[in-house]
């Protein structure tokens, strides 16, 4: 049965389905409903919810729970994510799985609480120190908030690495029908965990490697893991892209607007198509190259002054022109505006 559900609430429900019984967080708009519903639901399922004294503490509690072998998550937005970056680096360095939901708002600084997509860099490129990556998933609907939360737990465990649900404020705040089906959460054994039991008492979780060679060995091990992740985990979606002359590219709420814009453009005779990355890291570069093989131009649309567009340019490597359009500060473009942008760029081509 479908239930009308807020994106943020869907995250908590999906986390419970995935077997997550540990949530450590700190409130921030527009992510707060995740902590609120975690506080409401997780203890009723026998789990732990703690409101930490800061995002710094919250992410370190996540670190502790992950050390103990728990499926654990936290949620925040821009300023809170900045504070968590140290902990995220430690989690990646110590190869600890966890899920972090970032419901993006306007920045930099205190910014505002309206939707933006300006945490793309700090989440996909590693906002903390050291050579690491987060697995970054970008939902565009309430149903996907749930589906990708569950996938995030799976990938985090598979790669022993933080996985991020990167959504904008709109996807977090909107309500749509959500359909959940009861499934048994399959969790891998974690023989490396430190649980305070005789079986695990010899285990050590750490990210310190004092000698150069051991440090390099560790960083290379992480690198190999990330390469494997790039090979195996890219996800994307296309819409009317098969015969497209122009490809629009966007993720999250923007991809929904672009989908409508594609229909508007097609109704006006312009063969437009949509490419939507679902994994922002690993970025589906190869899939994008294939989708863009026959197009004359691509238009990237973001609620940032240009972050994902860099990955698009890297993927296409100068083969075709990459145009960019953005709104920031909480403003979102209309499908009609995107259509007029498209028309202008295509006319310029002629």
């Amino acid at each position: 049965m479908r239930q009308l559900c807020k994106g943020n609430v869907a995250v908590v429900k999906a986390a419970l389905m995935a077997g997550c019984r540990s949530f450590y967080g700190y409130p921030i708009t527009p992510a707060s409903e995740i902590a609120e519903y975690a506080a409401l639901l997780i203890p009723q399922a026998g789990g732990t919810f703690v409101q930490a004294e800061s995002e710094v503490s919250a992410i370190n509690m996540v670190y502790g729970a992950s050390c103990a072998g728990q499926r654990v998550m936290t949620a925040s937005s821009g300023p809170g994510i900045s504070l968590m970056q140290e902990g995220i680096s430690y989690l990646a360095g110590a190869e600890l799985p966890c899920v972090i939901a970032d419901i993006m708002r306007g920045g930099p600084g205190l910014g505002n609480i309206s939707p933006e997509q300006s945490d793309y860099f700090c989440m996909t490129k590693g906002g903390g120190h050291g050579c690491y990556r987060n697995i970054v998933l970008a939902p565009s609907s309430v149903q996907e908030m749930a589906a990708l939360t569950m996938l995030a737990f799976e990938l985090a465990d598979k790669y022993r690495n933080p996985a991020v649900l990167l959504a904008d404020g709109y996807v977090g705040q909107m309500m749509e029908p959500l359909e959940l089906e009861m499934t048994e959460a399959i969790q891998p054994a974690k023989p490396w965990a430190v649980r305070g039991t005789p079986e695990t008492h010899g285990n050590l979780v750490s990210s310190i490697y004092l000698t150069n060679d051991l440090m390099e060995e560790h960083v290379r091990k992480l690198e190999a893991k990330y390469l494997e992740c790039e090979r195996s985990e890219c996800r994307w979606e296309t819409y009317r892209a098969e015969d497209a002359e122009v490809l629009v590219i966007g993720y999250g709420i923007v991809s929904r607007i672009l989908r409508t814009a594609v229909d508007v453009a097609r109704a006006h005779g312009l063969k437009a198509g949509l490419f939507r990355p679902i994994t922002l890291w690993p970025f589906p570069s190869q899939a994008l190259r294939q989708a863009a093989e026959k197009v004359e131009k691509v238009l990237v649309v973001e609620l940032s002054t240009g972050q994902m567009v860099e990955d698009v340019r890297l993927a296409l490597n100068g083969r075709i022109p990459v145009e960019f359009y953005s709104r920031v500060g909480g403003n979102v473009p209309s499908a009609e505006k995107i259509h007029s942008e498209l028309m202008a760029h295509m006319e310029a081509l002629v």
Partner: peptide, 26 residues
């Protein structure tokens, strides 16, 4: 010769909080 966890600077009480909550008998 115990279970061992290395924490970031100053964060040990937060890490310890979740370790303990996860396994109250530890």
């Amino acid at each position: 010769d115990t279970g061992n966890v290395q924490a970031a600077h100053g964060r040990a009480p937060a890490v310890a909080t979740a370790l303990k909550r996860s396994n109250p008998e530890s």
